[in-house]
């Protein structure tokens, strides 16, 4: 039964977050992107299975994809690192674009502000939504990757061969997959925080997508210019090769740690700008 409570001036955060998650996971375009992401490991796995094992015609392919052949548990990691180049950032950028700019475009942002959802809580609630998208997207790739790797590619009975030529047992192999998945989520949250900040300034979701994808391309170009090497530590994308480190043995943590630190800096800055802007934005 419904009762009316006089004391509250905002809805409980758990309820807001749950509603946001429901909303995010029902959005058709998000579901389409999830499906596309799940196809990435399937496509790699089938491709590997068709072209044959190591020493086949796959030496010209991406290095990690070559490492998948006959080594199925590498597939989720290879798929994640491939998807991190474009599809995963696109997915979280879409979610972030819909979160603020899209709500503004549909005039629904006003409804939330009038409810009222506090402006800072609104950002937190949107953060939960985007986090959900990032987690589900990464899990889609990782889980489908493990299953596809297991069934389609196969490999030496539940083990993973590292780039260092050592063999890891199933538990540790899955641990490495989980490590890359978690690391990828953090990197995506950095993208999402910046995308949310852009989203807070516009009511055109496409502006957010263009800004994020354009930013990735610009970062890539900057990273390729030798005289701008000093910029490298500032570029989020320059640490994105570190996911491969999970395939080395013993596990080197330097690259993963520094890229995570870099992502956290982007995350904090993006979140701060988003909150700052949303405190002032007209509804």
């Amino acid at each position: 039964m419904t009762t009316v409570e006089q004391a509250r001036t905002t809805a409980p955060f758990g309820r807001l977050a749950a509603a946001e998650v429901r909303w995010v996971l029902r959005r058709p375009r998000t579901l389409v992107l999830f499906a596309l992401l799940a196809l990435v490991p399937v496509a790699i796995g089938v491709g590997i299975a068709l072209t044959g094992g190591p020493g086949g015609g796959d030496r010209d392919g991406p290095g990690l994809v070559a490492a998948v052949a006959g080594n199925g548990l590498v597939l989720p990691i290879a798929a994640l690192s491939l998807a991190l180049a474009l599809l995963l950032p696109l997915t979280v950028a879409t979610a972030a674009a819909d979160a603020l700019a899209g709500e503004a475009a549909h005039s629904t942002l006003r409804g939330l502000l009038l409810a009222p959802v506090g402006r800072t809580r609104l950002v937190a609630m949107k953060g939960v939504g985007v986090l959900t998208v990032a987690v589900v997207a990464v899990l889609a790739v990782a889980v489908v990757g493990v299953v596809t790797g297991w069934i389609v590619v196969g490999g030496p009975s539940g083990t993973m061969i590292t780039l260092s030529g050592t063999t890891l047992g199933l538990g540790e192999a899955l641990g490495r997959v989980a490590l890359v998945a978690g690391w990828t989520i953090v990197q995506l949250l950095a993208v999402a925080a910046v995308a949310l900040a852009v989203s807070a300034f516009t009511e055109h979701p496409l502006v957010v997508l263009a800004a994020v994808l354009g930013g990735l391309i610009v970062f890539g170009v900057l990273a390729a210019i030798p005289s701008l090497e000093w910029l490298q530590p500032l570029l989020l994308t320059s640490g994105w090769g570190a996911g491969t480190d999970a395939l080395r043995d013993p596990l080197p943590l330097d690259g993963l740690a520094s890229s995570t630190l870099r992502a956290l800096v982007y995350l904090v800055l993006g979140a701060a700008v988003t909150v700052w802007r949303m405190r002032r934005r007209d509804g």
């Binding site: 039964m1 419904t2 009762t3 009316v4 409570e5 006089q6 509250r8 001036t9 905002t10 809805a11 309820r15 807001l16 749950a18 509603a19 409804g111 939330l112 409810a115 009222p116 959802v117």
Partner: peptide, 10 residues
């Protein structure tokens, strides 16, 4: 879900 005054089944 965002209405503060609404408690329980919406």
């Amino acid at each position: 879900a965002a209405e503060p005054r609404l408690v329980g089944d919406a």
